[in-house]
Design a protein around this nucleic acid. Structure first.
Length: 402
DNA sequence: CCTCCACAGGAAGCGCAGGAGT
DNA sequence: ACTCCTGCGCTTCCTGTGGAGG
């Protein structure tokens, strides 16, 4: 028998596996009715012929910011084309378009699909965007996901806000999406007030909500009775405890289903979810680490190596503690590693910036030294199990040929 | 009490790449 | 095609901090 024929004939717990991948966009968004209503109310102004306020959306990863926004924009487009309202919506992931210029360029490529504006000056592209809106007397809604990654955000917001003065009929509105709560406070006061005319918060899902979401997905994606109720509960409980993140919850189910398939089981139980949990956690860590610059990976490597090799003894109590490291010794270890790998070694000052970065990603936890310690230092601890980080790191560094 | 230690983190500046202006 | 400009990653230098030790 052909090996592919064999693979196709293999029984599966999935009815439609695509529906439990993170890319799938459900047509029902439970527990986001409020946010949808608020967004709809603001954007509906465009249908009545006046410019909607700018909206700023924030919430942690996996709280449904992106899907909800896309969903509302889809509905808006659908309705607008039915009623011949002049509305253009653009969705931009700013991680891939991290400057004012690139955001505007992306808008242009949608407004003028037959033209290619790459290489034109920033001013020209801006004019093109404004004149399109002006000429068509339409309302442009620009949704900028991960807006905190835009370098010259103040300029972008200012330019788009100001453009509304030049446009007599129609207007440009911005929907900014961010998962960084602190980001809002770092903004220039003017930018902040114009971007945050309307604010929307997406709170993390609790265990009950996650359970309902998972149930809905299970019905769509899995065969009937292929997932035990308790397995769903467990997946929801794990995700709720760790982050309230719907994406990890869905990933848990997906991996659990795959594990069941591998074992040739027809039902997904708690056991598979438990196994999937390890896998998903590793995937998350691997993902996070692989996007880090090499130097930060080396700092992290220094921390993991030390935590694996060393006892951590609290000098005050003399007790065997969890692997707590001193900032100084980590720096020394990092220098050794970097030198031995023939990578350049950054200064201690910059190393401290790296430590901050790593902390914001949750990969490490730092605490200021208190009494019992000579002088001022920072204690560093890993945010995840050292062994897991170590295995991810060695995979990545190997792939990079280091 | 003063001084030293072991750092934290601000300020200034430097070399570089790539984009803008001419 | 050319210079000019600007942002980025980084270094150097410096001031601040709070306990330890004399």
């Amino acid at each position: 028998m052909n090996i592919f024929e064999e693979a196709l004939q293999k029984k599966s717990v999935f009815k439609n596996r695509d529906l439990v991948t993170p890319h799938y966009m459900p047509d029902k968004l439970p527990f986001r009715e409020n946010q949808i209503k608020q967004m709809t109310n603001v954007l509906a102004l465009a249908l009545k012929g006046s410019k909607p306020d700018n909206i700023f959306i924030y919430g942690r990863t996996g709280t449904g910011k992106t899907v909800t926004t896309k969903f509302v924009l889809n509905q808006l487009n659908e309705f607008a084309s039915k009623t011949n309202a002049k509305i253009v919506t653009t969705y931009i992931n700013c991680r891939n378009h991290p400057t004012k210029y690139k955001v505007l360029l992306k808008c242009c490529s949608q407004y003028y699909p037959e033209h290619n504006f790459i290489g034109y000056s920033a001013g020209f592209v801006y004019e093109k965007v404004v004149s399109y809106v002006e000429k068509n007397e339409c309302f442009a809604i620009i949704a900028s996901d991960e807006i905190d990654t835009v370098k010259d955000l103040d300029d972008l917001i200012y330019a788009l806000t100001r453009s509304n003065d030049e446009i007599s009929k129609g207007g440009i509105s911005i929907i900014g999406i961010s998962n960084n709560v602190l980001f809002k406070d770092r903004l220039d006061a003017r930018t902040k007030s114009s971007l945050c005319q309307q604010e929307l918060v997406f709170p993390p899902y609790n265990a009950y909500e996650l359970k309902e979401i998972l149930k809905q997905r299970v019905e769509l994606a899995f065969n009937e009775n292929a997932v035990q109720e308790s397995a769903i509960n467990l997946a929801a409980a794990i995700a709720a405890k760790e982050s309230g993140d719907a994406r990890t919850a869905v990933m848990l189910l997906l991996r659990a289903g795959e594990i069941a398939d591998q074992k040739g089981l027809s039902v997904v139980t708690d056991k598979e979810v438990e196994e999937a949990r390890k896998k998903v956690e590793e995937e998350i860590i691997l993902n996070m680490i692989s996007t880090l610059p090499i130097q930060e990976q080396l700092v992290l490597l220094a921390i993991t190596k030390l935590s694996l090799n060393k006892r951590g003894i609290n000098k005050l109590t003399g007790m065997q503690e969890e692997n707590v490291l001193y900032s100084g010794e980590v720096y020394e270890e990092y220098c050794r590693i970097a030198r031995s790998l023939k990578e350049n070694v950054v200064s201690a000052r910059w190393y401290r910036e790296y430590i901050h970065e790593l902390e914001t990603y949750g990969l490490i936890v730092t605490t200021a030294s208190g009494a019992g310690q000579r002088g001022q230092t920072t204690f560093i601890k890993l945010g995840y199990e050292a062994q897991k980080i170590y295995s991810s790191l060695s995979k990545i560094l190997q792939a990079e040929n280091i």
